[in-house]
Amino acid sequence: MTLLSNISWRSIALWKRNRDVFLFTWKTNFLPPFLEPILYLVAMGLGFGALIQADIEYGGRSLEYIKFLAPGLVAISIMYGAFFECSYGSFVRMYYQKTFDAVLATPLSLEDIIAGEILWGATKSFINATIVLAVVAVVGFSEMPGLLLIPVVAFAGGLMFASLAMLFTSLVPNLDSFNYPFFLFITPMFLFSGTFFPLSVLPGWGQQLAMALPLTHISNMARDLSYNIWDADMIIGTAYIALFTAITFLGSVYLMKKRLVK
């Protein structure tokens, strides 16, 4: 594991840098994750949901559409929080602001920088998802005690999406190229990961395809925890996150070194 031997506690210093920028502009940072779920709940839950008369069977429970939808919104915020941060955010810091170059002249290694960025991406998922969760829980669409574990899933899932984003960041030639991963991965996941409708309505192959997507597992875990459904989803999801994170993290470190060390 020579790829990992240069990672140290010093990556926290980079995490703190990003945290400081975030807190510096906190007013613009906290508002979207607070307002967005409200808009979705009103439009999709109350508006669109009014057309759906039947309850949705999920994990042995029968849920109104809006209750089914709410944990999906938490899952989506986990994905977007880290993915935006470590795609557009990291690329701007690396390419335009030359922040990585500046930090490389200090005792931090490139591996520390990547780890710090990914830790920060996961933190963004944690913050955003916790705000969405609070909104959802206040209106009763997420229940105790399971919901207390959702921020943990948010951080772990954040690590996964941050590592995936960093992989693309190490590959894209310019900012516009992020349209491809967004169009090819993120938007399909947003729509087809059991976020807006239960996967059981899909044909068998569709369900299997969905199970390969990272967001499906986050979405399942968020919904299970919201309604205290304890089944295999949690174990499968945890294993999936661990494996997917390990692979994408190692890949992003390898490719980022290839890109930046000259």
Binding site: A13, V21, Q97, K98, T99, A102, T106, P107
Partner: peptide, 25 residues
């Protein structure tokens, strides 16, 4: 002190120094 300006545009003048100092622990 590199040739290229890579000061941190997200921070003030003073903060550029303190944040940089933190990288040295």
């Amino acid at each position: 002190a590199p040739q290229e300006n890579n000061l941190d545009p997200d921070f003030t003048v003073r903060r550029n120094l303190t944040v940089y100092g933190r990288y040295f622990d």
